[in-house]
Simulated assay, not measured.
Amino acid sequence: MNFAQLLFPDFSLILIGYLLCRFTALDRKVWEPIESLVYYFLFPVLLFQSIVKSPLDLGATSSLMAAGFTLGLLGIGLSYSLPHWPWLGKRLDVRLHAASAQIGFRFNSFIALALADKVAGPQGLQLIAVIIGVCVPLFNVGAVWPMARHAQKHFVGELLRNPLIIGTASGLVANLLGFQIPVWLEPTVSRIGQASLALGLMAAGAGMQLGSLHAAKTLGVAVLAVKHLGMPLMALGLSRLFQLDATQTTVLLMFSAVPTASSCYVLAARMGYNGPYVAGLVTLSTLLGMVSLPFAIGVLNAL
Score class of each variant (00 low, 15 high):
39 Y>K: 01
139 F>R: 05
259 P>A: 07
229 L>A: 12
54 S>G: 02
263 S>Q: 07
15 L>S: 14
276 P>K: 01
264 C>P: 05
128 I>W: 04
184 W>E: 11
158 E>M: 15
135 C>N: 06
271 M>P: 08
291 V>R: 01
74 L>M: 15
136 V>R: 04
277 Y>M: 08
282 V>H: 08
152 Q>K: 09
34 I>V: 08
84 H>E: 03
143 A>Q: 06
144 V>K: 13
116 A>L: 07
68 G>S: 14
14 I>L: 04
269 A>F: 05
270 R>M: 10
210 L>W: 05
295 F>P: 00
89 G>L: 06
253 L>M: 10
272 G>H: 06
295 F>M: 06
159 L>W: 12
5 Q>S: 06
113 L>I: 13
109 S>V: 11
24 T>W: 00
92 L>K: 10
294 P>H: 01
33 P>H: 02
276 P>D: 03
195 A>Q: 01
95 R>D: 11
281 L>D: 06
36 S>A: 03
26 L>D: 00
81 S>N: 07
186 E>H: 04
130 V>T: 11
199 L>M: 02
103 I>K: 04
80 Y>F: 14
40 Y>H: 12
8 F>P: 02
256 S>E: 14
71 L>F: 10
87 W>I: 08
41 F>W: 08
131 I>H: 03
123 Q>I: 12
105 F>G: 05
94 V>P: 07
11 F>G: 15
116 A>W: 04
155 F>I: 15
10 D>T: 15
166 I>W: 14
22 R>Y: 00
218 T>S: 14
129 A>C: 08
133 G>C: 02
219 L>I: 13
138 L>I: 10
271 M>W: 08
235 A>L: 06
234 M>D: 09
45 V>E: 09
223 V>M: 12
231 M>G: 04
109 S>G: 13
183 V>Y: 04
97 H>C: 12
101 A>Y: 03
177 L>I: 13
277 Y>N: 05
20 L>G: 01
234 M>V: 15
81 S>G: 11
266 V>D: 01
194 Q>K: 10
291 V>H: 03
2 N>W: 00
193 G>R: 03
247 T>M: 09
177 L>P: 10
46 L>H: 12
274 N>S: 11
153 K>W: 07
260 T>Q: 14
272 G>R: 05
204 A>V: 15
275 G>W: 06
178 G>E: 05
46 L>N: 11
186 E>Q: 14
135 C>D: 02
172 L>Y: 11
285 S>W: 03
36 S>N: 01
48 F>V: 12
164 L>H: 09
140 N>A: 12
146 P>R: 06
228 H>P: 06
208 M>Q: 05
293 L>R: 01
286 T>S: 07
182 P>C: 04
4 A>E: 05
239 S>N: 09
251 V>I: 15
